[in-house]
Design a protein around this nucleic acid. Sequence first.
DNA 1: CTGAAAGCGCTAACAA
DNA 2: TTGTTAGCGCTTTCAG
Lengths: 333, 333
Amino acid sequence: MNISEFAKEAGVSVSAVSRYFNDGYLSDDKRALIEEALQRTGYVPSYSARTVRTKVTKLVGVILPKLSSESISRVTEGISEVLGREGFELLLVNTANDYSREISSLELFRQNRVDGVILLASVFTDLHRSVLAKMRVPVVIVGQQLKGYNCVCHNDMGAAYAMTSLMIEKGGKLPAFIGANPDDNAAGRDRRIGYEKALADHGITPDPKLMEIAKFNMDSGYEKAKRILSGRKRPDCIFCATDNIAAGAMLYCREQGIKIPDEVMIGGVGDSRMGKVLYSPLSSVHLHYKTAGTEGAKMLLAEMRDSSDVRRILQLEFDVVERDSTARKYETV
Amino acid sequence: MNISEFAKEAGVSVSAVSRYFNDGYLSDDKRALIEEALQRTGYVPSYSARTVRTKVTKLVGVILPKLSSESISRVTEGISEVLGREGFELLLVNTANDYSREISSLELFRQNRVDGVILLASVFTDLHRSVLAKMRVPVVIVGQQLKGYNCVCHNDMGAAYAMTSLMIEKGGKLPAFIGANPDDNAAGRDRRIGYEKALADHGITPDPKLMEIAKFNMDSGYEKAKRILSGRKRPDCIFCATDNIAAGAMLYCREQGIKIPDEVMIGGVGDSRMGKVLYSPLSSVHLHYKTAGTEGAKMLLAEMRDSSDVRRILQLEFDVVERDSTARKYETV
DNA sequence: CTGAAAGCGCTAACAA
DNA sequence: TTGTTAGCGCTTTCAG
């Protein structure tokens, strides 16, 4: 059933029906007529037909590298909370860490399918930049900084610096690092820089043999911890770029009977929910993922309402969460 | 720019352009002309205009109670994998456990916005049934069974039965139960039935004082474990309806110095990733969440292609994963 | 406040 | 193969 059939059914004009669903410039009796017919027929207007006219989709495209990650799903939860409240739906694309899908999704979103885009990418290539430049709707990037775009990000460098410093101040003399893909400016590069800066500020020279790059999962953390801890020089504290990596490292220590924190301290980033129930409760740095989502969504809403020429970077601060994994009973002096 | 402006720009007819993007019934020179103009202008056809004509949205609505849950995000990952491969996008609604939003999303999806719907609800009310009955596109329910609908679900009863039996066979004489909302037929009701059946089959009478209902999170598991373990009769094994609840219970035991598994065994359901890095690695029952997502998506695809009158229920089996939390060193006879 | 009518951008039937 | 054209279902002037 379309609007004119329905209008006939209700005994009113097409415009009356349209007004009923829009501005509501309508007399009460017509309104009643329409409501009655609505009950009777179950008519629902077609969204796409409306979109053809109004150019409004009430849809926001969200591009994610992964769904089943705690940090990402928290961000998404924040996004959906704010956008849902404003009557927007999420058109979600899970790229499964396939960069080419990031590009093709952006292309897709150019087809007037969405009113705005939120992008959670981990790496930006030139291709990204060129497709982004062609977008005709506002874009907000969450979790990363990209010049020329509105971004909500974390203080990754500060977070890594704080966690590493904590371990050094607890007596760590020989720190090790298990990081993430350096092409990822936030979790990879910045957290590494933070680690190195903490070492420098405490007069420690980083040992390249004690630095590894892991994937974003436990198994990889386990493997890298194995390499680091089976070397000749055994570190007394390990900074891990994510809590998942840290959990994997902890698993290895447990298996090998390496005491945490007395023999090795472990620190992570992200403050994931499992942290406090781990074998040794994990010290971590809380990043405000959900807030990143809500703020990113608000930024996008503002841009969709009226676009500004001024680009904004919102950096969210962190909170260090100290737990057992860095709680040295005695400070080895 | 619209199709006729673009056609003029390319020096071809409107239909040539339309054919370029659709059937491809087109001579090579025209094709070349169009491709060249595409480069030059950056024209992209409007999806909604196409939808008005074709009634195809290439969108699937997915309704979830929550985003940041490992089990749900695994299901969603499965869904997005299969549907993405077939060129469908996900229109995601996070109801945040608000049942009324489940209803309103279904209403929304009736507005010809999606070609099909996948529903991950936890509870079905009469209102659900009445809205579902009005849907004009195929619907698949994942994680629950609802009569008259295509469903993909788990063997929740069997899973609970298996885990409870395991603990009893390991020497558990006085089992306790921390379950979930009984209105949730899968995680609430069926897992409870499985627990009770295991007790009955082993000649144990369930003690109502040793049965609690928790929310789907750690804190709640902690609280309920506290109640159960501070009673006069202390159980020697606790079946928890989810791994999160189990992790909370474990936290309480740890705080109180209650030895796992020697004083109390703990078993969960879901086999979440944190299980193996917990304080005491958690015995659990692996449920095939991702497969539930892929199978649900396939079922929906089949229905969208041509709808069948026959309703199908696909039940996925489980795998018991034994870890330390139920590994009694000596069996207390 | 109301209704008629002209599109929105596209697809597909039709005739060539 | 091709181009013309009549819609798809809706919104929104415009004149009343």
